[in-house]
Write a protein that binds this DNA or RNA. Structure first.
Length: 535
RNA sequence: GGGCCUCUAGCUCAAUUGGCAGAGCUGCGGACUUUUAAUCCGUAGGUUCCGGGUUCGAGCCCCGGGGGGCCCA
């Protein structure tokens, strides 16, 4: 059995506070619950933390509990609100006894009658009233001495409504449910975005929008899975640690496996494994899981992000379009209750109704005023890019890459209402089959919402010979210094050689779906995004 | 990668031309039996992100570094 060293905070007996210097403690000292351990002078402790540590120690000293194993809760805050809100008038008292617990978010301690507002995880609140007449002078004094903002408090008593109309538990008994050592931030002021992200646990206590985002995200995940299950898709988990990186164009993270002494890649996409599952007969398959890309981090990119991929045998990029539209619209209805998204700036767009459907080359030609086709020479495209002030790495530039850059610059940013953009260049889509009727393009669409790419889908390339050629092309790109190019995945090619049925495949960024549905940045949609450590 | 902005008490923010580092909330002590961010009186709380420099004197000016944000690519 592995024993982990427990990290406990050393607490010392009450000392007279003298001077203005912050006290210190050493959180590496294992004191095994002893409040008698002397402080080790190592780390500064703010005054408020010191005071609360002293309260904890005193409570333990006096034989009380700062962290009881449980408290006898009989009702949730929500249950009491639901049962009594609107049924009682100011001053009404019931004989209904309840035991309730929550975090203390406001305290109004008057002389002989104290008020505390308890909050649950959803942000619903309930007032507790503690009267000296009801609980006794000693108990009320202890309440004032022991309970701080941020503590978890348990109260037992009758359900009443105060004279000013606030639904309350009129306590006949109370206990500390868990003592908070760190103070809450000021609840009526917004924290800085950095603090919100770095200390999301505090953000979730303090900010309703943070709580809502977590719940919206959960509702979206649940909705997506439900939509897939209704269509008889199976959910599987494919490897996150891969010996080759492939399935997308992106720089991978590299890690090392000691047992085999080999480098492994954190996956950039689950695509190749999901296709192997389709070859093996899992004909409707999806996965929702994390991808990792070793690229920049900004307001729309995170190095670690949640991805949905789905494959359907005997489907194509048209069936995937219908599927995707339904997934998104259903998720909006399930999570928001409407298909109309209202952005924080007041802007609105509707995910319902018909979605726009445009083609890449014609829409680019119209936007930049020049005819651009799959046959437009690279040199002409580069000239256009230069004129539009788009800087490119000419060493690794291909016609398709430049066309996509041009398209994003001239068209992509303005697409707020959902729009499918169809039929992409061949050389940027090595896993996609050639278009059934148009030369020089592949059957691929990108879905744009709110100015960014939300999803992409292909009629999948299933010809193993063409697939091998495309990989070899990628390998040549890699040799020219393109770090995003795919490697030749022999395992995957052999799987394809066993025969993959004609299929449609789709990938969607889950974080981006949340961004599209809520209008917030990616760091708000991810509960605990990666943040740069402080030095 | 480039440009611009930003970092001050636990939290949110001030600080005039370079001239004694402040407020509100939180904390601590006191008063108060119907409060809603309770109120009132008193009080404590600082490595002004870090390291250099200029200056009689730097939160402020200069150089370098770090964190964060926005815009561009």
């Amino acid at each position: 059995m592995i024993r982990e060293r427990s990290a406990r905070v050393a607490v010392w007996p009450r000392q007279p506070s003298r001077g203005t210097r912050a006290r210190r403690y050493d959180d590496r000292v294992n004191t095994e619950n002893s409040p008698q351990q002397p402080p080790a002078p190592d780390i500064d402790v703010p005054e408020q933390v010191r005071v609360r540590l002293e309260k904890r120690a005193r409570i333990l000293d006096e034989g009380g509990q700062a962290y009881p194993v449980s408290v006898p809760v009989t009702h949730t805050i929500a249950a009491i609100r639901d049962a009594y809100d609107g049924t009682l008038e100011a001053g009404d008292e019931t004989q209904d006894l309840v035991g309730v617990a929550g975090r203390v978010v406001f305290q109004r301690n008057t002389g002989k009658l104290c008020f505390a507002t308890l909050q649950d995880g959803e942000g619903r609140t309930l007032q507790v009233m503690l009267s000296q007449r009801e609980v006794g002078a000693d108990s009320l004094a202890a309440f004032k001495a022991d309970v701080d903002l941020g503590d978890h408090l348990f109260a037992h008593g009758r359900v009443i409504v105060s004279r000013t109309g606030e639904l309350s538990v009129f306590a006949d008994d109370w206990r500390l449910a868990a003592k908070a050592i760190r103070p809450l931030p000021a609840l009526h002021k917004e924290s800085s975005e950095e603090n919100r992200v770095r200390r999301r646990h505090v953000d979730l206590i303090a900010r309703p929008a943070a709580r809502e985002m977590v719940r919206t995200r959960a509702a979206v995940m649940r909705s997506l899975r439900e939509s897939f299950h209704q269509r008889d898709f199976l959910e599987i988990e494919t490897p996150m640690l891969q010996t080759m990186h492939g399935g997308a164009s992106a720089r991978p993270f590299v890690t090392h496996m000691n047992a085999y002494d080999i480098d492994l890649y954190l996956r950039i996409a689950p695509e190749l494994f999901l296709k192997r599952a389709v070859v093996g007969g899992v004909e409707r398959v999806f996965e929702i899981n994390r991808n990792f890309r070793n690229e920049g981090a900004d307001s729309s990119h995170s190095p670690e992000f949640a991805m949905l991929e789905a494959y359907e045998a005997y489907g194509d990029y048209n069936t995937m379009a219908a599927l995707t539209q339904d997934l998104v619209v259903t998720a909006a209805r399930d999570a928001l209750g409407t298909t109309v998204v209202t952005l924080p700036d007041g802007r609105e767009y509707d995910l319902g109704g018909e979605w726009k459907d445009i083609q890449l080359y014609p829409s680019l030609s119209a936007a930049c005023g020049e005819e651009i086709t799959p046959h437009t020479p690279l040199a002409d495209l580069l000239t256009l890019a230069k004129r539009a002030d788009i800087s490119l790495d000419e060493k690794t530039a291909t016609p398709g890459k430049v066309v996509e850059e041009l398209w994003e610059h001239f068209v992509g940013d303005d697409l707020y209402a959902p729009t499918f953009v169809r039929d992409f260049p061949v050389d940027t889509s090595p896993l996609t089959r050639a278009h059934r009727s148009q030369e020089g393009v592949v059957e691929k669409w990108d879905l744009y919402v709110r100015g960014f790419e939300l999803a992409t889908a292909y009629s999948e390339l299933v010809d193993p010979v063409v697939q091998r050629e495309r990989f070899e092309q990628q390998a040549r790109l890699a040799a020219r210094g393109d770090a995003e190019a795919m490697q030749v995945d022999e395992e995957f090619l052999q799987a394809m050689e066993h025969g993959m049925p004609p299929s449609g495949g789709m990938g969607m960024g889950i974080d981006r779906l949340l961004m599209a549905l809520t209008g917030h940045g990616i760091r708000e949609t991810i509960t605990f995004p990666l943040v740069k450590p402080r030095s």
